[in-house]
Simulated scan of single mutants.
Amino acid sequence: MDVFETTFALSFHYPMVLEKFSPQSNGYAQIKVANNLIVEEKGMLVDDFNTLCALFNEKQDLYESRIGIILAETGNFRFSFDFFFTLSAIKWP
């Protein structure tokens, strides 16, 4: 599916889910990243729940989101990008 051709949306939002491995539970658990540890180069941080926004680049015909995280502690981490949402620019009669 082409998101832009389907929705004409100039952006879409997606959650940045960062998980850290816990030896106590022998598994990964979601952690919150403080806003001051998130660096935005392209795209933007939308809210305090680590929701990010990818913006449509009309010249290159693609969505861009380049977000960095400053890791403030050591450990094993992983990202999950299982979900995104967009609002359609289509106007219904």
Rank of each mutant, 00 (worst) to 15 (best):
N35W: 00
F8R: 14
I31A: 07
A34N: 12
Y14K: 00
P23E: 14
F21L: 08
L10N: 13
L37A: 08
H13Y: 09
V17K: 00
S22D: 08
Y28V: 06
N26R: 13
A9W: 12
S22K: 07
P23I: 10
L18N: 00
G27Y: 07
N26S: 14
S25C: 09
P23H: 10
I31R: 00
Y28E: 05
F21N: 08
V33Q: 07
S11R: 13
F12S: 06
A29V: 13
P23Q: 10
N26I: 06
E19Y: 02
S25K: 14
V33D: 05
F8G: 11
F21C: 09
Y28M: 07
A29N: 14
A29T: 11
N35P: 03
S25M: 12
N36A: 04
F12G: 03
N26Q: 14
P23W: 12
S11Y: 12
L37D: 06
V33T: 14
L10C: 08
K32S: 10
I31F: 04
V33F: 05
L10T: 10
S25F: 13
I38V: 13
L37F: 03
V33W: 01
E19R: 04
F8P: 03
Q24C: 10
Q30E: 14
H13K: 10
Q30W: 03
S25E: 13
Y28S: 11
N36L: 00
A9N: 13
K20Q: 04
H13N: 15
K32N: 08
A34L: 09
L10Y: 15
Q30P: 01
Q24T: 13
M16A: 06
S25I: 13
L10D: 14
N36C: 04
N35F: 00
I38R: 01
S11N: 11
F12A: 08
N26H: 13
K20I: 02
H13C: 09
Y28R: 05
S11F: 15
A34W: 06
K32P: 10
P15E: 05
V39R: 12
K20D: 00
K20C: 00
K20V: 00
Y14I: 00
A29Q: 14
F12L: 07
A29K: 11
Y14M: 03
L10M: 12
L18V: 03
G27K: 04
Q30M: 09
Q30C: 01
F12H: 05
L18C: 03
H13M: 13
E19F: 01
S22N: 08
M16K: 05
Y28H: 07
P15D: 01
V17R: 01
V17A: 00
A34T: 05
K32T: 10
G27E: 09
V17D: 01
P15S: 04
V33R: 02
H13Q: 11
A9Y: 13
A34Y: 06
L10G: 09
Y14H: 03
I38Q: 01
F12D: 09
I31P: 02
I38C: 01
F21R: 07
L37V: 02
S11E: 15
N35L: 00
K20T: 02
N26L: 10
Y14L: 07
P23F: 15
F8Y: 09
I38L: 01
I38H: 03
N36K: 06
A9S: 15
L18W: 01
L18G: 02
Q30S: 11
S11C: 11
N35G: 04
S22T: 07
Q24R: 15
P23L: 15
